[in-house]
């Protein structure tokens, strides 16, 4: 059920990137799409009633085997969290480049409206 809501957020972002006419609104639509995918990836690792995948000092005093068993039985999956960290960094770089190209387009064309930025056609 939550996955369907995540997918709905993805569709909202896709609609925004396809239909809107302002350059900045298209960029915001792309950002919403990337948030939706990151959210979906984190929700994959969730375990009902799980704890954060961190080993603390009190855990270590109990002994090595108990730590591993406790971790495997009750921790949320940490691999999607690492994937999402990487994906967030990638989308940061991509968005920075998009915004700077938007600013340079405004310098050249004087407008943010994509119906007026159409010198290339054919």
């Amino acid at each position: 059920m939550l996955y369907a809501l995540c997918f709905l957020l993805f569709m909202i972002g896709l609609y925004c990137a396809v239909v809107k006419k302002n350059l900045v609104k298209i960029v915001i639509g792309l950002a919403i799409m990337e948030y939706a995918v990151n959210l979906f990836l984190i929700m994959l690792g969730y375990r009902v009633g799980g704890t954060a995948p961190i080993i603390g000092r009190s855990d270590l005093q109990a002994g090595a085997e108990r730590v591993t068993a406790h971790f495997i039985n009750s921790a949320v999956d940490p691999l999607p969290q690492a994937l999402v960290l990487t994906a967030i960094v990638i989308s940061l770089g991509s968005l920075a480049l998009l915004i700077s190209i938007c600013i340079r387009i405004y310098d050249k064309y004087g407008t943010f409206d994509i119906t007026e930025i159409r010198r290339l056609r054919g």
């Binding site: 792309l30 387009i105 010198r119």
Partner: peptide
Amino acid sequence: LEASFKYMVLGTVASS
């Protein structure tokens, strides 16, 4: 710049 923006938007959608 216009070509680069078009390429970037479509490329980001593809990556998502």
